[in-house]
């Protein structure tokens, strides 16, 4: 009998970090080889499965930052370190990190969109020699929805950062949507660069348009999609957009492809 791709395996929760009132990061024991931008199908027997992107990884663990938004995630929030959580994966493609190396990188992330790019950011934070420059625009709705505070403050030291809140005015944060700050990126000064945009669909749409307006070529823009998924392996059909299965060919898409992924 062949391998059962739907079979999840139990993994120990090493640590739980409270990011915001309804977003926790779970550090989970696993030896899975994970690439930046991939996701796991996370489940609890009795409750169900949900696709969760990897927000950090290390030797023998991954971190999943989970927002309490539904049946599965609500239940996961009741878990404690030492408890078991079930996973299968990792699934999907990843950011072309090798392609990013030695060049300039612009990361534009909104809200929970920071999660799927966090591992990428942490990688270049820990390997600053591998990137020419990194410009990060991270936006949140308000003060209480700011994620990864410690990381963000670390990133200030090695990256060019613009942090922004939609409305609240607090120290260290600009005001306004991420799109409003894109023009501040010195695209003209870059020799060779890439732009990563992750966030809610509307935010990605307008951020990409803003980049194009600022002269960024389509081929340099990368997006990460979020879709309903039941299987993560190209069978259930929920995430399909035209001929593309987001779980298989995505979630990361170059803009040249993403612009044709119409719903």
């Amino acid at each position: 009998m062949s391998v059962n791709i739907m079979l999840p395996t139990p993994h120990k929760i090493i640590d739980i970090i409270r990011e915001t009132g309804n977003e926790y990061t779970f550090r989970i024991e696993t030896n899975a080889k994970v690439k930046h931008g991939q996701f796991f199908q996370v489940s609890l027997p009795k409750v169900g499965e949900a696709p969760i992107s990897v927000s950090a990884m290390g030797d023998g663990w991954v971190e999943l930052t989970i927002r309490k938004v539904g049946k599965v995630t609500n239940e996961i929030f009741n878990l404690k370190p030492g408890d078991k959580i079930f996973m299968r994966g990792p699934y999907g493609n990843s950011f072309p990190v090798d392609d990013f190396k030695g060049k300039d990188l612009v990361v534009i992330a909104g809200g929970t969109g920071v999660s799927p790019v966090r591992s990428l950011l942490k990688y270049f934070y820990e390997h600053p020699a591998e990137i020419h420059s990194l410009h990060l625009i991270a936006g949140f709705k308000d003060e209480k929805s700011i994620l990864f505070k410690e990381d963000l403050s670390n990133f200030r030291k090695r990256f060019n950062t613009i942090y922004t809140l939609d409305k609240d005015k607090i120290e260290g944060f600009e005001v306004g949507f991420v799109t409003e700050h894109i023009k501040k990126i010195p695209f003209d000064s870059f020799e060779n660069y890439n732009v990563v945009i992750v966030g809610p669909p509307v935010m990605m749409h307008f951020a990409a348009l803003e980049c194009l307006k600022n002269g960024v070529p389509e081929g340099k823009i990368w997006l990460s999609f979020e879709r309903k998924m039941s299987c993560g392996v190209g069978k259930c059909g929920h995430c399909k957009i035209n001929e593309t299965y987001v779980c298989l060919e995505g979630p990361v898409f170059n803009y040249t492809k993403a612009k044709n992924l119409l719903d």
Binding site: M1, S2, V3, N4, I5, M6, V233, G234, K235, Y245, C247, L248
Partner: peptide, 9 residues
């Protein structure tokens, strides 16, 4: 075939 995996069910 899709995705290079088989659904055993």
């Amino acid at each position: 075939k899709n995705g290079g995996t088989e659904d055993i069910y």
